[in-house]
Design a protein around this nucleic acid. Structure first.
Lengths: 242, 242
DNA sequence: TAATTGTAGATTGTCAACAATCTACAATTC
DNA sequence: GAATTGTAGATTGTTGACAATCTACAATTA
């Protein structure tokens, strides 16, 4: 038997992004994730392995692997022997997502503040300015992107890989919900003001304050949950789309 | 084309546990997870698909699926075209795990306290008594099990599915570390006292207090991180096992 | 007619073989 | 002798086919 002594991670990525070998199933997962988050595949849509393998000219095994990955990420739900559908979120799910994000972000804000430097502050400020710019437009998709980017930046600055990873997953599910309901009708000026406060606190290096602000700022989430709860209680149009 | 109208979750589980159909890959994942957490497979061990498929008389595809699941859970690390190994945790990992668990548990404690009932309190009390009993022995495995069971109970009482799921994953990784290092040499009476405080706060329904106690009680984690850091800084025996 | 049973088609679960890639070691070159 | 190159074996990545299971609808029965 051959026993390799080296089994280490390659650290030299990013140099030639076009030559990075990425397994086919990972690429399929990326593709489907984009289609789901952009709304091209709406919640409840069936994901047939044969259809996908025909469309992408890949075998069913590769598709299956991608669907399994997306199931872990909470964007797809699997039913044994019956197939996969794009996840649809209930009020309970929305509540879980926003409370979980809140807890994660409190920790991220604290850690980012504790390790704040001038460079980090500049990066964070840039993300904030980007969000402020987009809010002056009515492009909700762009606003959601900028919002997600700002939060992602905070998690990156925390230096906590698992925290980043978790936020990525939770954030994707939140975007899935927003995309599916065309919600996000929250109070923009209020949201912007809260983000400014949060960034300011993190950049100041006051970990306690940053954590506290991150924990208390959750208006978008609450607004969305309330709206979703109202829709569920009122069975007017059962399938919003499809 | 056939379009099924029903695609809903079966709610009637638990009735006949022995007849519940569980896919082979899930069973393999369970098996390997147990072997990893029990220490039978130590960190760094190679997981060869052919070996496993020979041992379990299953195809490589089924094994691959199980390994993908364990990779998502953080118990296994995959290297493209080179295979899988049981994850080994660094000081950074331990720090991430304990800080993340702390954040998750703060939320769980708050939610459990907010929805406390007499029945829930009884369940929680029982788990606490079980832990207290085991600490009177020197069976570290049993103590770790009881500790994990108590925390799991708190998360179950939170009524937050994603929180439960996340804790499961984080908890498994923590147990992997403990098993691999035979650590857990923390101050038992102190730990017991902290758990008693936490349970008492949750059962009292004081959400703020429960959250605060959960956030501040982290001595086991800090002790383990310090120990691991010391081991890493002192490159005495590079491979502890194998 | 309502409920049950049986059958066909569709779809996923599993498998075994082929292709691509990696590691280690030997052969070659300077 | 050190560095480079080539080769063989081992291992994973991918594929297409077969088996197991589910859904829907038709046939049967009370």
């Amino acid at each position: 038997m051959r026993i390799p002594t080296r089994l280490k991670v390659k650290m030299n990525a990013k140099a030639q992004p076009s030559i990075i070998p990425r397994s086919l199933d990972a690429q399929v997962a990326d593709l489907l994730r984009n289609e789901i988050l952009s709304g091209a595949l709406s919640p409840g849509s069936r994901l047939l392995e044969v259809d996908l393998s025909d469309r992408l000219n890949l075998s069913r095994g590769t598709i299956r692997s991608a669907l399994q990955q997306l199931t872990y990420e909470g964007l797809v739900v699997q039913f044994p022997y019956r197939g996969c559908i794009v996840a649809g979120l209930t009020a309970q799910d929305a509540w879980e997502l926003y409370t979980l994000r809140n807890a994660l972000e409190s920790l991220a804000a604290r850690l980012a503040a504790e390790t704040m430097t001038l460079e980090k502050a500049a990066v964070l400020e840039a993300a904030l300015q980007e969000l402020i710019q987009t809010t002056k437009t009515a492009d909700w998709q762009a606003i959601a992107d900028a919002d997600f980017a700002l939060h992602t930046t905070i998690f990156q600055l925390s230096g906590h890989r698992r925290l980043q990873q978790q936020y990525q997953i939770v954030g994707h599910q939140i975007r899935l919900y927003i995309a599916s309901c065309n919600a996000l009708q929250a109070d923009l000026p209020e949201i912007v003001a809260q983000h400014i406060d949060l960034v300011k606190a993190i950049c100041s290096g006051d970990a306690n304050l940053a954590e506290q602000i991150a924990r208390e700022h959750n208006t978008e989430g609450q607004a969305l949950i309330d709206q979703l709860q109202a829709v569920e209680d009122n069975p007017a149009q059962d399938p919003p789309r499809i």
